[in-house]
Nucleic acid binder design. Structure first.
Lengths: 207, 207
DNA sequence: ATATCAATACGCTACGTTCGGTATTGATAA
DNA sequence: TTATCAATACCGAACGTAGCGTATTGATAT
């Protein structure tokens, strides 16, 4: 799990510009696609630990060596596969800040319920303990976009006068994102959206 | 990783009442102790993944079979070892609610910085995705006590009149605990305690 | 009291299996 | 000619199991 990026380690840049090609047979783009697709599927199905390189190779219809030609190890492969799967985040605009917040949480809820998102989250947390660069990929792809959406909503609210001009947006985002993550982890409570609505209302009495 | 408790699976209840003992040689309490100690040490040192049963047995000075006589698999052993390691949580009482909160966070910060706590946290999150009963052990031992401390502080504040009587304590605890966890995960910011102070102050303008 | 018995734990060694990762080989595409 | 591909064998680490002989205990028979 303590792995460097992997892109640097392999001579052929599969996803590269494609213009300057060295000698010899080029990598198969079809294999690239099949590998990443199979890896992502299996990761979503069984999680990181139970994902085996043999299974990925089998599902992709590719030999195991073909995997290792592209990625130095399992960690790098999974990182690349999940990296590609960035879910797009919508920036809601309902007119009111509270409405935007609720809508954003509503949209996020399904993501937090999906096993794949939780698995990525788990990977991020566990890799944090190991201080790997892994964490940065996940943070950038999965957390930062949602933080951006939060910040955007708050900024608009500020301009509309719904939020005090001196409010620390970064701090507010921390509180909101932290509460959302916590609700996702916390066992057995009321539905996420409802609870988050109450959290929003509580914080907003202090706006 | 999908494992039932383990206590039920093995006939001898090592930690049982000790009064009614059937025939046969009893389990060695020294071995019990050595096993759990070695497992906890190794878990803190190398994490769950890299922890091997062979290493535990070697460090405990015990045969591998002795491990499997007690615990059905690695997951159960680690669960038992970490279960025993409940860190005690102090309930601060500085006189003011804000002071109590800050003090509690200050004490908690060192725990959040230790690799073992982070590893347990990671295990909890990843096991949540797998829906294992594992998660409940960790939640009960590591999260719930701190939630209790939070709730206690807030309750005292309520009685002192520092907090509105109709404040939803459970919800407040969620926000505070969630923010703290988030800060622990979030890469590279200011020191946890300082940031938590600001979060407390922000929320408390809405008391 | 003492020997025996049944039951269980213990350490040891070995084994079967899975899986990550490497090496080799012959064929194939550019 | 040169690198990729698939197939296969291989190595080593690790989980978990099985069998052996031995040690320790409670119950029982003499």
């Amino acid at each position: 799990m303590n792995r460097s990026n992997g892109e640097e380690l392999h001579p052929r840049d599969t996803a590269g510009d494609g213009i300057s090609r060295g000698p010899g047979r080029p990598r198969s783009a079809a294999a690239d696609e099949a590998i990443l697709g199979a890896a992502l599927e299996l990761f979503a199905e069984v999680g990181y630990q139970a994902l085996s390189m043999e299974a990925v190779a089998a599902r992709a219809g590719v030999a195991k060596t073909t995997l290792y030609r592209r990625y130095p190890d399992k960690a790098a492969l999974v990182a690349a596969a999940t990296d590609r799967a960035r879910p797009s985040v919508e920036f809601p605009d309902t007119g009111s800040m509270r409405g935007d917040m609720v809508e954003l949480f509503r949209v996020t809820e399904s993501a937090l319920d999906s096993p794949m998102t939780m698995r990525i989250f788990a990977l991020m947390v566990s890799e944090f303990a190991e201080n790997s660069e892994f964490r940065d990929v996940y943070w950038r792809n999965f957390v930062e976009p949602r933080r951006q959406a939060f910040a955007e909503i708050l900024e608009r609210g500020k301009q509309r006068g719904e939020l005090r001009g001196d409010a620390d947006i970064d701090l507010l985002v921390d509180i909101l994102a932290g509460s959302a993550m916590y609700q996702a982890i916390r066992p057995g409570t009321e539905p996420l959206t409802e609870r988050m609505e109450r959290i929003i209302d509580l914080i907003w009495t202090a706006l």
